[in-house]
Design a protein around this nucleic acid. Structure first.
Lengths: 140, 140
DNA sequence: AGAGTAAATGCAAGTACTTGCATTTACTCT
DNA sequence: AGAGTAAATGCAAGTACTTGCATTTACTCT
């Protein structure tokens, strides 16, 4: 788990300001278990700071995801996202998501690396979204 | 482009009833260009039938996507989905999506086919979501 | 044709963010 | 330390579906 100091440094390195709401958000994220939704985070935050705003939380989660400080995965097309602090790998990667318990595991494979030029039909500036859903060992 | 008769047959084969709202939805989809949102479809439908309901449209788009009669792609995590009638391929496939004009192209490659058992960490019952975003030839 | 039944619909309310804009604030520069 | 500025926030309203439940209806079976 990264330290608060490391996280702060990463914000500054990426030109994001160290605001009160961001610092509190980081503290709360450090205390929360693996994967949590924006609403869960907001609730926990609101217990500590009545002035917390859901829109600010979402904007900051987005901003932090943008600088790879957090990972974000989509739970089956419902507009529900899960966020977690990057605990070890900050490189680009994807996820395996359990359809039963919601457990998320890292997947060290990016399909973009194996696509051929023919597949890509002259598209450039590529990014991809890739998530694998299934049942984990304990949910089979 | 499939015929209305073919589409009706596909609904029945999959145990979906031929209701008035589904038939009108298919007619409208046949008249619409490539990729459209649920809202766009609803608007067009409402012009013809004042009694059309947005929730019914969404449910039917989902149902038709479920039986591979439509494709659905997500435009960059905003909860905006695009749908199109499957014009040629009903097999499982993914999409290339232009970040500028929204153009969608089929991608005949599924990452699940090249993942190793080690990558999958004993997950079973796999499905995947895979979309590639980039700029198409004319938007470079 | 008429009854039975499971699926589909209509409606209202909910969900999980997202967006626009005026105001505030963290950092920068003197 | 104080002024300037671009980024961040607060708030209200919007967005694009989604869900729950009572009612209706397409197909099935006699």
């Amino acid at each position: 788990m990264p330290s608060l100091l490391t996280l702060k440094g990463k914000l500054l390195q990426n030109g994001l300001k160290l605001t009160k709401s961001r610092l509190l958000l980081l503290e709360v994220l450090l205390e929360m278990p693996g994967w949590v939704t924006a609403s869960e985070i907001y609730k926990k935050l609101a217990e500590r700071d009545k002035a917390a705003h859901f829109s600010t939380v979402c904007r900051n989660l987005d901003a932090m995801t943008g600088i790879s400080l957090l990972c974000r995965v989509d739970k089956e097309n419902n507009g529900i996202y899960y966020y977690a602090l990057h605990d070890h790998k900050l490189e680009h990667h994807h996820h395996l998501i359990c359809k039963s318990c919601g457990k998320v595991a890292a997947l060290d494979f990016c399909p973009l690396n194996v696509l051929s030029a023919g597949d890509l039909q002259e598209f450039s500036g590529l990014e991809c979204r890739f998530e694998v859903y299934g049942y984990c060992k304990s949910c089979r």
